[in-house]
Nucleic acid binder design. Structure first.
Length: 587
RNA sequence: GCCCUCGUAGCUCAGGGGAUAGAGCACAGGUUUCCUAAACCUGGUGUCGCAGGUUCGAAUCCUGCCGAGGGCGCCA
């Protein structure tokens, strides 16, 4: 139970005593900290139901609250706001309970859901680029948060390894190197070495995609190659496996550098065997139609404000496109994984695609009504010019290069500040890595998911302002105090009732952690945790400035402050952990 | 053309139907016998794109308009 929930229950009971809905008792942090710590706005909303003036209701509620031992003050202000503050003793008690709780007051989900988070979306033939960055960072943060909350989370990068793009690559490689064994009729044994590198693929794929747009003959060859691959052509399969492998190696390296992990490493190809039976079921369900030689599912619904193109289940040439693969993936996730919730962390431009797939999945009975499918979309990462982030030459920026940039920037900052000079070189480098990645992730996650935002290396890697490095530094300072306390054999003890606003504000802030986690999950919005982490650091820094822990002479107070610092660190580190940001021991 | 998203301080961005719309940066000044000063404190700026509507109350919900970005049958 969090303090806010506790206060909401008390206030709700007061409303109920007046014959009003208890939900009006919702208590929130105050918007006017100079007036009170918390507030309840329910009286205004309840006024209509009660047929009484809001102030009258508020007065009655405040009166009941005032007699509660934990409430220091309950007053009515303005049209019917109820301003509430709790006693210093209650703050200390709640603090002690929460600080000693490994979950920091957050209650594990009562009914854990199986949540599939589909994010990152790497593709064969493409090193990951900045376009994958947001999906990876946001998806990872959401996966971490749902996991913390007690849900069963399955992280799936959903490797793009199966559609027409593979046919394009095969057709292009065949044309470039027709003598390769993969293209010889009847061949069944193939080399272990890949005939292509990732760089080859990155060169070949865009050219092939472009060519297919106006060269109908080539496009047809690629479509045929797609079908043959999907039907099991041994040479194509062997070549395809090589292309997958060289792509994955590069992508795993990028994920590793970002500290991002997955539970599954499935690709589109892994559901291929499910497609045929699924298509059969869909046909039996009567939702499939023929149109221009293709099999389609119409997905228009009553009340649509626009026309929707149908989902193409099977193309004219008999190949399966990514919509079909996505449908089969839903089928797999529902039946094999038991998914209750599927979050597709994919950029906004694919909105129409997901609408089609989700509607088709419902219509065809692949997704039962109780299963939630959601396109958790996000905006673009732009360069300083406000346009999508590009290299100076206008090309796509590789993700590995972005990581390199931020780590270099972090290293430079650390050197400039003559920081960590006496640390071993390996530790300095590790710190640079952690700081760089923190700069990158926090710079992204502090923004609302749906906004476009500007990637600004200077700003993100600064130690001042709302940045990852600032937060790491704040956490490191706490760690330093805790180390010193240990050296001096100063033991933490129970929190004492606060006597300064710096202490009160810090405690009140730390007690709000559970609500922030819940809000982040509800809204699928890690920026709430990011903002909270920043505020945590600020609240701690003010406390640090006001209350000198180690030099405090009152032993009980010193012990209590030490616990408060430890609690603040736990909260800050856990918040950052949920964002995928790690804090070094020192820096 | 149709549909979606966005428009908030000089810049980058928050903002859960509630009070006086916030933060960071930038700019100016201040704080150190003290646990990492990469910190903290103090200063001020807004037609919340425009116009209506719903509501006791709107940056937030609805409608229209203006502006920006994105998407619109066999690519992913």
């Amino acid at each position: 139970m969090s303090l806010l929930r506790h206060l909401s229950e008390i206030t709700g009971r007061a409303f109920a005593d007046l014959g009003l809905d208890a939900s009006h008792g919702l208590v929130l942090p105050s918007q006017r900290p100079e007036l009170s710590q918390f507030q309840c706005n329910g009286a205004m909303a309840a006024a209509k139901q009660a047929g009484k003036p809001p102030r009258e209701i508020a007065e009655a509620v405040a009166e009941k609250l005032s007699s509660h031992p934990e409430i220091a003050m309950a007053e009515v202000a303005g049209p019917g706001f109820i301003n509430i503050s709790v006693t210093d003793e209650a703050l200390a008690e709640w603090g002690n309970e929460t600080a000693s709780d490994p979950r920091l007051g957050h209650e594990r989900a009562e009914e854990p859901l199986t949540v599939v988070v589909d994010y990152a979306g790497p593709n064969v033939a493409k090193a990951m680029h900045v376009g994958h960055l947001r999906a990876t960072i946001i998806g990872d943060a959401l996966a971490r948060t749902f996991t913390f909350a007690g849900h069963k989370v399955i992280r799936d990068p959903h490797f793009g390894d199966w559609g027409f793009q593979m046919g394009l690559l095969i057709a292009a490689i065949r044309e470039e190197q027709p003598d390769l064994p993969y293209f010889q009729p009847g061949a069944e044994v193939f080399p272990e070495e890949s005939p292509v590198t990732l760089d080859d693929l990155q060169r070949i794929y865009p050219a092939a995609a472009e060519r297919a747009r106006h060269d109908e003959e080539f496009a047809e060859e690629a479509r045929q190659a797609t079908v043959k691959l999907q039907q099991g052509h041994p040479g194509y399969r062997a070549l395809w496996r090589h292309m997958k492998t060289v792509s994955e190696e590069s992508q795993r390296a990028d994920f590793g550098a970002l500290g991002v992990e997955f539970d599954l490493w499935y690709g589109e190809s892994d559901v291929h065997d499910l497609i045929e039976p699924m298509v059969e079921r869909l046909k039996e369900a009567g939702v499939v139609e023929e149109s221009d030689g293709a099999s389609i599912i119409r997905i228009e619904e009553e009340g649509d404000k626009r026309e929707w193109p149908p989902l193409i289940l099977e193309s004219r040439t008999g190949g399966f496109l990514y919509s079909t693969t996505d449908l089969a993936t839903i089928d797999f996730r529902v039946r094999e994984l038991g998914a209750d919730l599927m979050l597709y962390v994919v950029d906004r431009r694919q909105g129409d695609h997901f609408t089609q797939v989700f509607r088709a999945a419902r219509k065809g009975g692949i997704a039962p009504p109780e299963v939630v499918m959601e396109h958790t979309w996000f905006g673009t990462m732009n360069g300083p010019d406000g346009k999508p982030f590009r290299t100076r030459e206008g090309g796509v920026v590789r993700l590995g290069d972005v990581i390199q940039m931020v780590v270099d920037a972090a290293r430079k900052r650390i050197e400039e500040a003559n920081l960590a000079e006496e640390y071993p070189p390996e530790e300095r480098e590790r710190i640079a890595q952690l700081v760089g990645v923190a700069a990158l992730k926090f710079g992204d996650l502090i923004n609302n998911r749906t906004s476009d935002y500007v990637f600004d290396l200077e700003r993100f890697s600064s130690f001042e302002g709302k940045t990852g490095p600032y937060l790491q530094y704040a956490a490191v300072r706490v760690k330093s105090i805790l180390r010193k306390a240990e050296e001096r054999s100063i033991e933490p003890g129970p929190l004492v009732p606060p006597t300064t606003d710096a202490e009160r504000n810090l405690i009140i802030h730390l007690l709000q952690f559970p609500e922030v986690v819940e809000r982040t999950m509800e809204l699928r919005a890690p920026n709430h945790i990011a903002e909270y982490a920043f505020e945590t650091a600020g609240a701690f820094n003010r406390f640090y400035d006001t209350c000198h822990i180690l030099s405090e002479e009152d032993e009980a107070r010193r012990a209590g402050w030490l616990s408060l610092a430890r609690w603040a660190l736990s909260t800050l580190e856990l918040s950052l952990h949920l964002l995928g940001i790690e804090v070094p021991d020192r820096m």
